[in-house]
Design a protein around this nucleic acid. Sequence first.
DNA 1: CTGTTAGCGCGTTCAT
DNA 2: ATGAACGCGCTAACAG
Lengths: 341, 341
Amino acid sequence: MEKEVTIYDIAKRLNYSPATVSRALNDHPAIRSDTKDVITSMARQMGYRSNTFASNLRRQRTNTIGVIVPRLNSNFMSCALAGMEKVANEAGYNLIISQSLESARKEKANAKTMFDSRVDGLLVSVSYDTEDIEHFDDFINKGVPLLFFDRVIEHNQCPSIVIDNVKAGYEATTHLLEQGCTRLMHVTGNLKRNVYADRLKGYRMALQDRDIHYEKQLVLETDLSQEAGVEAARQLMAFPHRPDGLFVTNDLCAVTCMGQLKKAGLSIPADVAVVGFNNDPVSQVVEPNLTTIHYPGREMGEIAVKSLINHLNGLMDMQTTNTIILRSELIIRASSLKKAH
Amino acid sequence: MEKEVTIYDIAKRLNYSPATVSRALNDHPAIRSDTKDVITSMARQMGYRSNTFASNLRRQRTNTIGVIVPRLNSNFMSCALAGMEKVANEAGYNLIISQSLESARKEKANAKTMFDSRVDGLLVSVSYDTEDIEHFDDFINKGVPLLFFDRVIEHNQCPSIVIDNVKAGYEATTHLLEQGCTRLMHVTGNLKRNVYADRLKGYRMALQDRDIHYEKQLVLETDLSQEAGVEAARQLMAFPHRPDGLFVTNDLCAVTCMGQLKKAGLSIPADVAVVGFNNDPVSQVVEPNLTTIHYPGREMGEIAVKSLINHLNGLMDMQTTNTIILRSELIIRASSLKKAH
DNA sequence: CTGTTAGCGCGTTCAT
DNA sequence: ATGAACGCGCTAACAG
């Protein structure tokens, strides 16, 4: 293991002081541009690489952004992460990613690690069973920018980035009603989480606007897994007065559910019209293609990081931009089209 | 911004030396367990958090593993990353993830960043157009463990983790032949990459074992995108003597291709039997369900990190385990079953 | 078992 | 425009 080259080595070699070398390498204005040239080229020649830790230690910054998500292997989340990585990378930041696996306990542990790693900022989409955000208090108290996205928690010091889930739920439901559905089942996730609670709210508003009675038994709170899709199909078919419309807040779950319904001999959309959520690739593969809400995952990731970096650079304070709302979009495909064109 | 608590503050408060505090906090064996207790509880009480940079600077380690992948939003890759994160996290390592977006240029830039961040080890799946691995020489010269997975490049100093792609290709092809197919089209990715070259090799071996003439025109080298699936379907149908079997090395591409074939009135598997690759969720959604090769993504990620950490701990040197081969598995579903049960 | 000492490599005053 | 000197917080020798 050969010895690392430091600014001292460069300084000695060029008869400059380490201070000058440091300044030159950081493009400090008070250094003549020709000496800058000499120094940088010598640095390159000697195979110098700056030591991030020494620098971080000194500057009390890390150029690192932490990300905590429930799980990283869903289509939505991997797109969001891809967007984050791209923007962060271009801005010279590193990303440290960890997953809570839907457990508040693990989320807490991850938060501690992030805190100890002194990330400059933290992006969080909370787990299923997160109750409070005490475990993020350290960040807030220390003034480390904390930003929630997708699954957010209200906090007046933390901006959040979301889509308008109420509107999306409203649109999905209204679309089904416009297609002539009269009885809508709604399969969703943990109602503690804003995303699911809001979509339900939209569902209820759409019903109300058309004077349709809201039946609690038609709403299924699940974990949105594929198994949940199977179970949802079972329940749907068990109703004496069978629902003729189905709104599932996750495409993969919706698609599995559709599979079960078809297997049982029901026809889609004639017997049951279906709308999913996320615009996952599976939605364009299943037959009939699944009507769904396009969720701008990549864009959300990009904006989350951009916004965080702006905070870090002081271009924006935490108060001004408390909530950013991205546009989602209903994408109509065959699975919900009862009326032919 | 309140002042950070350091081990000096704890030491002073407890009348110990900083060294003792440091050792106690790191669970050093040569410290009495009761003084450990006193120190750790005081640390907690004072709101102490260890400073990773100072520690890294001193120990010349980072407890960070770098990962460079072509893109992180595919089902396979996000599962692999999920596995990596889990193992790394449990072992006290952080993950820095970046994507090359299939560009050798970006891969090179990412490698430099990783090097400057002084990652303890690096995991790489190379991009489509990576020609050489000069950009990783720094790591090799410095003795930083470098490990390739999935898309690997032969190098006697770098272990790699793969599945037996030749065998997988052989099995997929043989299965189609056993179903009575006589003319097999093969849609694959960039043949510079081991994964695709090996699968092709398996395809050819299977043909040879049954004395079937290999026709170059039946092999399509594509980017495996969904568009490529559409194009593949077009070409398949354009053959005067139409192929009756299709082996695509990517499920999403295969599924899109199937969609086109069905739209054109062909029946699957009767007219064309299809086998995909990866066992992506879409394979169980498409009709008929897609026969595919299960690729153990999550497991590969876990083993990659485990293996890297073993290297770091000196439990294993780079020579002993040059290649780890994981088991893949043919999963037979309806899309390839010409013979009824 | 515990303390003393000496850097790790850098950025930043304060000088000149 | 450049240099001298200090300290960020921690850990590893070496002593006892």
